[in-house]
Nucleic acid binder design. Structure first.
Lengths: 340, 340
DNA sequence: TTGAAAGCGGTACCAT
DNA sequence: ATGGTACCGCTTTCAA
């Protein structure tokens, strides 16, 4: 059987109240008693039950992390950052992959609620606003990471997606491109929309336009990026540069180009968003708008923990600036394009 | 305030015992009562506290997953499989990245123990046998995934590493290679050792040898793979084929080759182990010994859950057969090798 | 078929 | 400085 506080109390010849105080460093306990109790705890290898404490305390020191898919490198990196920073504050984290399905998200949220996690970090899109409204009603502590929910007033940390898109376009424009294709994620996701909006803005500021049919909304899978890129690259007048809203989509685009024997970057440039390990590992290595993933994870946890400790007077929304990492997948547009 | 079983009982005009029985489908309750109580539960949106139940039950329906690093795609994929199968059995999973450090592993294990997780899935190497012995003493339910601990008698699911190595060598031999290099992981890890052993065996069976200095033990990081590969490829008589014990190391090898302007597979073949998304995405795409990651995750959870339910009379050790996935990174050895 | 009550392992208030 | 004790929310005998 597990050692309990009662065992320790009996062994040390004191009351459980005293033991509890020693453990939590509360109340006044004489040095002698304290030392003696500590010794007993040591000897018995007593480890307090977090569960039991939670029942009175209302704190489980566990956080839930809602993301689309832990096996997606972007979210793997987010999870790692969240885990580490959580750990630093004494929290464990439960991962929940939603596959971007509201129903799965809802199920996980209920579950986490029943398990009394102290708070939630949400990094997945949730379309059904009711799900979040219910959270708010229960005043369940939530922080958003890499997502935005304008309807909700919750601490948020994300990258400036608009600027990110803008930067991507600026880079491409500087290289001399004028025909653009875009692989967006689901346009219902604000961040994706912002990226595209930023991209378009920069292009339009340069006096150019993007044809609507050159903007393709994709699922978040690589395959879909490849399929949509195949379409774009097979147009009569294909774009000379592709802006992909995630590394996964960019990988798909690279595959599409390879399949069509179109050289990157000589014949078409590809610029990505996220800058996960995938971007650095591809060949050609992907030029990408970089999200400060680790920093974002850290900040999201800090925000949530502050919220839990009620140290947060007002809801903060931290917007980080993305940077562009130039690698091999972007270059000048081909001077002359073969006409098929 | 949260709705409790007392609220439901009061509202339905019954005792909490009755409500409890209805929730858990235990005991005999009249249809009428049951229906009425269900209605109240519905109306009040009552959600039982798992924490409180755990205090009596001894079950939190939470599992711990110990892996080296959740941001490593291999473990991301493992985690996803474990999460999904856990979910199917009603368990949540807490991720714990150990960075292969025993101290971190120990800290996490203590924490998980205090949080009363029902069981542990360990996918990280632990050198300090005492850590595991302590687990065994407490008869803490554990399952091993993609790891082996001969010292310990615990349910295990892994791929046959020896065969995997053997297959890799066989493939290379068939292509005509005779000078091999190996990027191993830490040789203290049994699975790595087995892979190398299998590889060597096949080579020796063919009447060839591998020079000891062509077997390099690496950390699990990509950089290290690159560094060690640079060394091997810079030898006076460099190997014509590299066997890498993980995708990450293989990526490093590919980078090294690119850096030295050595063409893969024309000048050197690279064969990998794991077959994560990285293998399929690289250029050239990696020929790899494939671990059935999803299946392994599923089986590990099944084994652990059976153990928890005491449905497991004897400890099972499930050894899956790896398959080789041939892609672009392997080919015939160069007929003539430039002599520098 | 239903309910009273004794835990489960802690915390914290209130006496002493 | 210590200890008694009433919870926390639920499960599970045991009586009724």
């Amino acid at each position: 059987m597990k050692i309990t506080i009662y065992d320790v109390a009996k062994e040390a010849g004191v009351s459980i109240a005293t033991v509890s105080k020693v453990i939590n460093g509360k109340g006044k306990i004489s040095q002698a008693r304290r030392a003696e109790i500590m010794r007993v705890i040591e000897r018995l290898k007593y480890q307090p039950s977090v569960i039991a404490a939670a029942l009175t305390n209302k704190k489980t020191f566990t956080l839930g992390l809602l993301i689309p898919d832990i096996s997606n490198p972007f979210f793997g990196e987010i999870a790692r950052a969240v885990e580490d920073q959580g750990q630093r504050h004494g929290y464990s984290v439960v991962i929940c992959s939603t596959d971007n399905q509201d129903e799965r998200a809802q199920r996980y949220i209920s579950l986490l609620y029943q398990k009394s996690v102290d708070g939630l970090i949400i990094g997945t899109g949730i379309e059904d606003k009711d799900i979040l409204r219910r959270l708010a009603e229960k005043s369940f502590p939530v922080a958003l990471i890499a997502r935005e929910m304008p309807a909700l007033s919750v601490p948020t940390v994300l990258v400036d997606d608009f600027i990110g898109g803008f930067l991507a376009a600026t880079h491409l424009l500087k290289l001399g491109h004028s025909r653009f294709g875009v692989l967006a994620e689901n346009m219902k996701v604000p961040s994706s929309r912002e990226r595209v909006r930023g991209f378009k803005r920069a292009v339009e500021d340069a006096g150019l336009v993007i044809f609507e049919d050159c903007i393709q909304a994709c699922e978040y899978r690589m395959d879909d990026g490849r399929g949509k890129a195949l379409g774009l690259l097979s147009l009569k007048h294909p774009p000379t540069a592709l802006f992909c809203c995630s590394d996964l989509l960019a990988v798909g685009a690279l595959q599409a180009a390879a399949q069509l024997k179109i050289h990157v970057p000589d014949q078409v440039s590809v610029i990505s968003f996220d800058n996960t390990v995938l971007a650095s590992v591809m060949s050609p290595a992907l030029t990408a708008v970089s999200q400060p993933i680790e920093h974002m994870g850290k900040l999201a946890v800090d925000l949530l923990v502050k919220e839990l400790n009620k140290e947060l007077p007002v809801k903060q929304r931290i917007v980080l600036s993305p940077e562009i990492v130039i690698r091999e997948s972007t270059g000048h547009p081909p001077v002359m394009r073969r006409t098929i």
